[in-house]
Design a protein around this nucleic acid. Structure first.
Length: 225
DNA sequence: ATATCGATTATCT
DNA sequence: GATAATCGATATG
């Protein structure tokens, strides 16, 4: 099992992060080879990491949504396999990235064995490492505290911009591969409480409780402050 | 070939 | 709270 050392900021009390240095394990393909609902819950508290040359970005996953595959009317896989969504039908633990509203990218992780097209959308992260570069990628000033920090990664489009995630660069990338520059890790953090709600921004199957977030975390997307 | 709309965000009032 | 921005995927003729 591949491990690495993840430096962390001294967390304030309300923050999901705490401690200073943690050993983290790369998530395995098996972690994702199960139904998206369970993966979406299990991904809360895990770390997304990006290698940018000699710089490192890290964010803790605090909000997710599950998309169940061909049987889910809200899923991109609902109409079957296309060139755009083919990653969803491939092996678990790979990045499915799509372009939305003419402006934004969204990052999903494929779930279930090959042939089944479930996935989990990453909706919000709590910044852990590399906030300066995140702010630069977002076109924001260097401020990284208070309400301004929420603008870095609180939303599916925002977190992709902060991590410089694009379809061209990252679609189909294996997020469980040690050599990948975009990876998912478990540093042992476990959320205290998880809330489930309807998914955001969809019209079909809008009542299903498939959005999950860490209770009380200030980096969850939506209105705050 | 053209029209519609979206798993969003920023910027108004 | 409301809406413009922006473009690729998909549906329709």
């Amino acid at each position: 099992m591949l491990k690495t050392r993840i430096p962390q900021p001294k967390g304030r009390r309300a923050s999901a992060s705490s401690g200073e240095l943690q050993t983290a394990c790369l998530l395995s393909p098996e972690f994702f080879a199960r139904p998206p609902r369970g993966v979406a819950r299990a991904l809360l508290g895990k770390l997304l990491m990006r290698r940018e040359g000699d710089e490192l970005l890290a964010g803790r996953i605090v909000e997710t949504e599950a998309y169940l595959g061909q049987a889910d009317p809200a899923a991109h896989a609902a109409a079957g396999r296309t060139a755009r969504n083919s990653v969803l039908f491939g092996p678990p633990g790979h990045a499915y990235i799509y372009f939305i509203y003419g402006n934004h990218f969204c990052l999903n992780v494929s779930c279930l064995p090959p042939g089944e097209a479930g996935c989990v959308l990453l909706r919000a992260l709590e910044p852990v490492m590399g906030t300066g570069l995140m702010a630069h990628n977002r076109g924001l000033g260097p401020s990284r505290t208070g309400t301004a920090a929420r603008l870095l990664t609180s939303g599916p489009g925002r977190l992709c911009q902060a991590f410089a995630i694009t379809r061209l660069r990252d679609n189909s990338k294996d997020l469980t591969a040690p050599a990948s520059d975009l990876t998912l890790w478990d540093d042992g953090f476990r959320p205290r409480h998880i809330v489930s709600t309807p998914r955001i921004g969809i019209t079909k199957a809008a009542e299903a409780m498939l959005r999950f977030y860490i209770t009380g975390n200030r980096f969850v997307s939506g209105k705050r402050d």
